[in-house]
């Protein structure tokens, strides 16, 4: 069948139907409260930082805060908050329904299972992006909140502020795409989410020491290459900081290669997940 003759309209309608069902589950859930906390914790941290600066009447240093933001974004937000947030959101897309014994609802519909993967992934992505994208935006506001409006306007409209914000939002989106695809696949293969989470976390941590080809099989490799502000060596290497080991990116990819590489990696993982879902059997008794 040629591409033109494929039932795109039907597929689009089916994906929208999946999104409608999934959004309710992904956004409104008590089980997911910890993800909200994870996403908003850096905002609270920056708000506190700005509050202290204001209270002490300090004028602050925009450059220093920009580097602080870069460090927290890479060390905490990307590697922990988005990472574990995606564990919580994406691993439950299939796994959660097996546990709730409700996956057969989808499997009994005249629906290509590949579309189910796409629909569920998009719903997870939308939830993750709303949560972590909003968090990135709020973090950016909170970290510079105490500075004078003139300094902030200068940074945003005549400096790199807007460009950095766009880049951080882009990296947040790509992180959700990358980790989302990985943990959606992991949810199909593992019953216990801790096992893949620890394995992927370890793989991402040692990424900088791997041969070039293996580095490309990680999400963080591409994300680090896209972060607009490099972590200064002063933060990374001084004082015997163990985080220095994971902040190093000896051979960063160009932005185009990084974006394309991450998207290809995610597509391959999603394609493999589709094959797995196509073969999947309903056997709730085994869980």
């Amino acid at each position: 069948m040629s591409m033109g003759r494929l039932p795109w309209a039907l597929w689009r309608a089916q994906i929208i139907a999946i999104l409608r069902l999934e959004m309710k589950k992904t956004f409104i859930t008590r089980r997911g409260l910890w993800i909200y906390f994870l996403a908003l914790s850096p905002v609270l941290l920056y708000a506190f930082h700005s509050f202290v600066q204001l209270k002490n009447g300090q004028s602050g240093d925009l450059g220093e805060d920009t580097h602080l933001f870069a460090a927290v974004f890479q060390f905490f937000f990307l590697r922990l908050a988005i990472f574990f947030g995606c564990v919580g959101i994406f691993m439950n897309l299939f796994r959660g329904e097996v546990v709730d014994k409700s996956l057969h609802y989808y499997f009994l519909a005249p629906l290509r299972r590949e579309l189910l993967v796409v629909g569920k992934f998009l719903s997870g992505l939308l939830a993750a992006m709303v949560l972590f994208g909003t968090s990135t935006l709020l973090q950016f506001v909170a970290v510079y909140w105490y500075l004078s409006s003139a300094t902030v306007q200068e940074y945003f409209f005549h400096g790199h502020g807007a460009e950095h914000l766009a880049a951080y939002l882009g990296v947040t989106l790509l992180a959700c795409v990358g980790y989302g695809s990985v943990f959606l696949a992991a949810g199909l293969l593992f019953r216990n989410p801790l096992i893949p989470a620890v394995l992927v976390l370890a793989w991402e941590a040692v990424n900088g020491f791997l041969p070039g080809l293996l580095q490309k099989l990680s999400v963080i490799f591409y994300l680090k290459s896209l972060c607009p502000v490099a972590i200064p060596e002063a933060i990374a290497l001084d004082r015997g900081n163990p985080l220095a080991l994971i902040s190093v990116n000896p051979t960063p990819a160009s932005p185009a290669t990084a974006i394309l590489g991450l998207l290809v990696l995610s597509l391959v993982v999603l394609a493999l997940s589709s094959v797995q879902v196509r073969r999947m059997q309903i056997d709730y008794g085994a869980d």
Binding site: Q14, I16, A17
Partner: peptide, 10 residues
């Protein structure tokens, strides 16, 4: 209704 929408029914 959701099942029928999943089936592609308008």
């Amino acid at each position: 209704y959701s099942y029928l929408r999943l089936s592609g029914k308008p």
